[in-house]
């Protein structure tokens, strides 16, 4: 019972953070929201007793993919956004 409540709450939070990925202003915050969403999906996997799937979800989708997005942002950002 308790586990089901946790799963429902986490699922709702996943939907909220997935909406945040599209709605939030700024690419840095977008990548962070994506990372939060992936971490929540990892929690959902772990509560569904798929520990390894959850751990790898955390490593790859919450860790590496946002970093690659952010590196792309940092390398392609023009002069208009950074400093003077």
């Amino acid at each position: 019972m308790m586990l089901e409540v946790v799963q429902i709450i986490v699922s709702l939070l996943i939907i909220v953070s997935a909406l945040m990925v599209t709605e939030v202003r700024g690419l840095v915050r977008m990548a962070l929201s994506f990372s939060i969403m992936s971490a929540l999906i990892a929690i959902l996997f772990i509560t569904l007793s798929a520990t390894y799937a959850g751990v790898f979800q955390l490593a790859i989708y919450a860790g590496f993919i946002p970093i690659i997005i952010l590196v792309t942002v940092a390398l392609t950002r023009g002069g208009e956004d950074v400093g003077d």
């Binding site: 840095v28 990372s35 490593a59 860790g63 946002p66 970093i67």
Partner: peptide
């Protein structure tokens, strides 16, 4: 542990 150590670098980059 390895995933968390990558996440720390994500925070550095942010």
């Amino acid at each position: 542990i390895l995933a968390f150590s990558v996440l720390i670098h994500l925070f550095y980059i942010v």
